[in-house]
Design a protein around this nucleic acid. Sequence first.
RNA 1: GGGCCCGUAGCUUAGUUCGGUUGGAGCAACCGGCUGAUAACCGGUAGGUCGGGAGUUCAAAUCUCCUCGGGCCCA
Length: 1042
Amino acid sequence: MIKQPKQKYNPKQMEEKIQKFWTDNDIFNKSVEQRKEYPAYVFLEGPPTANGLPHPGHVLTRVMKDFVLRYQTMNGHYIERKAGWDTHGLPVEIEVEKKLGLEDKQSIEKYGVKRFNEECRKSVFKYENAWVEMTHRIGFWLDMNNPYITLKNEYIESVWWSLKKAWEKKLLYRGHKVVPYCPRCGTALSAHEIAQGYKTVEDPSILVKFKIKNEEAYFLAWTTTPWTLISNVALAVHPDEYYVKISYRGEVLILAEQRAAVLMKGEGYDILDRFLGKQLEHKEYEPLFSYAKPEKKAWFVVLADFVTMVDGTGIVHIAPAFGEDDYSIGKTYDLPVVQLVKLDGTFPDEVTLWRGQFVKDADPSIIAYLEERGLISGVRSYQHEYPFCWRCDSPLLYYAMESWFIAMSKVQEALLKNNDMVTWYPEHLKEGRFGDFLRDVKDWALSRDRYWGTPLPIWTCTNSPCNHAICIGSVDELRSLSESFPDEYDLHKPFVDTLKVHCPLCKSLMIREKEVIDCWYDSGAAFFAQWHYPFENHEKLQENFPVDFISEALDQTRGWFYSLLAISTFLFDQPPYKTVLTLGFVLDENNQKMSKSKKNYVDPNIILDHEGADALRWYLMSANAPWMSTRFYEDAVKETLGKFILTLWNSYNFFATYAALDQFNPEKDMILVSERSTLDKWVLSRFHHLVGNVRSFVKQFEIHKAARAIETFIIEDFSNWYLRRSRKRLWVEEKTQDKLSGYSTIYDIFIGLSQLLAPFIPFITEELYQNLKTTDMPESVHLCDYVTVNKGVLDDDLEKAMEYIRDLVEVGRALRSKININVRYPLKEANIICSKETEESIRDLLELLQEELNVKKISFARNTDQFMIKTIKPKYAQLGPRYKEKTKTVIDMIEQSDTQKLYEELTKHEEITIIVNKEKITLNKDDFDVVEHEKEHLVKASVEDSTLFLDTNLTEELEAEGLSREIIRRIQSMRKELDLDVEDRITTELHMGSHEKNMVESWSEHIKEETRSTTLSFVKKPGGKLVKKWDIDDVHVEIGIE
RNA sequence: GGGCCCGUAGCUUAGUUCGGUUGGAGCAACCGGCUGAUAACCGGUAGGUCGGGAGUUCAAAUCUCCUCGGGCCCA
């Protein structure tokens, strides 16, 4: 039986109740298990790191994922929803360093790697509760009891296996990577870290002369880091820009033509020669210093596209050890990596002049030295952004560090081919940001010289002639090569480094490369490592690869989306996923990024407490396309609550209240659709059209459009039109066929809506469903199949007819408003001028129109003739020139006669004759404009190609009815004022003038009925609990009720 | 410095793929109506340099170029 709901919508209370219902009845598990034999829809969870609190952005991601998974489940798919945790990486280490007050790597070593990593392990789950709680509260159904965790031995073993595959394919190699490096902390910084430490500083900017070999001429280069000049090995020019050789103050210099024009502006110089940069390639010059003893050819000109004409001289000094561009051009030209700076940021002993000095401090002295030798042509100070260590504020140095790489450039074609097989939402990412990234793919710098991460499983033999290196791909393999491998172990540092591993060739001791690997590799391995593949679960991988669906925010394009594709490509030569839904960012009210420091951060819990998970979810899904950034603030969610959730709730509340009162029983009282009223058929047709639209929107991940379509249906079609128009028939006391037809339809719609909306707003839909479901229906709305379109109830003609009726109502109301006759007063007649077909199509709906417009009668006609009067109006411009001074008289005569008659005459005889001053004047059609207007008491308005006329003539009877409605309304508002229940009966006493009394008396039965008055009497002095005087226009009425 | 996405009324937005009636809605405002209809409903009014500029075209919110603002990625 349908129960009357508790009146107020209290999201927090209701959602807690629903959560309990789900838990008590194990609904989540059932929803997964009941689909076990169905086709799988494979989802892979992008693992979050639980060492920070969840952010509104994470809420969005989880809401969207949940929607898709619920939707696919209801549509008959089996989906495992394994949670995952990303547990390694520098951010974790930094948190722990902060907590323990450790400032650099030395202090970590001193503290002990074992203890340090233990702290990291703890820290990683510091906010696990907050994450679990958030996930739970927003209703994200995810198997959090059985997650994959990247720090587990099994997970690491799978990762090792994959690294060994890369090793066997000769994709792992050791090289250099230029990274921002803090010489004081002794550590490289991640991009994320340097981003927070940029400052504007002034550095010396100098123009340095490099003498060309065997020629009395110089290249003029530009730098802001004089200390790197000592490690210079080349000069770069742009291949396609023009360079000039000039004579300037007795010296011959080469620099870019554009730059010469800027730098030497106003100074005299002669151009000796002009040529393209590419002509300078391989031209040799003499080094500035003799400290470097490179083992490869150095000190010649190279070509590089990154050379700009914006500043400098168009000639860039190259030191591969200290710049990423420098390093990559160095690889192209096979330049030596000269690195005459120690890790602590000071010059080594061989740089005799500045040994032991911090490089940046040595700048002035280096400049002075070069000036003395006449090799500097200008010193200026230069303002630019320079990165500083966010921790200790030291200037960072770009520094080439040794690192292990995966040669992704070797599999670039496969990457592109695999990307081609992926469906991206939004589409532009495929060829845009992601495709561009792949076309320009760089080798993956895999290793990190840190502590908390998957250890790099590469061991090298210490025996010098042997030097054999191996990559270990499993625990068994490690065990077999190790002395006394323990039963209990943890593959992290320092355990792996304490093992005595013997070389399989010469049996000598091997030692491991000290690094750990990039944590992006960990998460990118999730598609197989979550199953501990290939050590177990072979068939699991078969069934779950490639995954059907992943979804994360836009920042993951070069993060997780890439690392998955990269690993899958070199391992299996296949894409790891079929569909990627990329989500936009969550921004604050002013479109600014949310950050704790800006204090514009919204705590999702507050919104969950106030507005509830459903309102939050609905807002996030309906506000914007998933891939667009969405503003997030409490008022926006509040608006969603008021506009949508409450409309839904109140409609439901209205229905459930009356259905409970009438003991409507959906198992017995349902009326066949074919026997329901036209209005019912209309709303069912609308609903099923909606279902079709929702399905096609969701297919394209246009979740916002699906949500908005539902919202429009509920607010406009269902609540504001269908329910409004149905109230009267549900209000009658008897169980009429019409009333049951209405209940049946509303019931159908609510069951349908609860299913249609279940993936969007899982709580309120469950609440509705639980109250409405019959015993033979699934125990939870989330165990139902998703609604499908019932083509049998689709009726385009009916929808069109209703549209037409609603248009007529609209213009009719507008007309009433224009002529100033309140809707409360009935009008005699409405006439609709339209085609026979149109008339036929709306016949069943006329009652709606009649009530909405409050007219006594609706009639039809095929043309407007009987409602319009045609008259003529003389054309002044035509008559004036012809009749000169007589014109005024002519016009006056015409206008004073019956213009309607004149029109008739003119149509009959083509011309009319009038006599002015005894002179006969003949006028023809061209002398007049035909003017049309409504007959007396009629007003008209047009809808499409038809016309509506309202008869505005208010008869005494009509006025009486109107007045009685005025009185009813006032009594009703007094009832409300007394806070009477709908059922309560009253007695009513009225006082008014005798004329009005006579008018109203004939309606007294009606008034009694409408106001639930047992008696209605006309008295001199009305009494009762509430007595009020009213002025209805100029009628004074006094009403008392009891 | 390079790339990608976004910019439409006070606010939230539709329309932009593929140029074509007068750029549609909702919220807020204002006027009026209706109401045992909910944080309502109905009618009307006002509110737009479609971020700005230029170009292509018979025709540009829509295409091209430049530019400004926001966001992101990379240097």
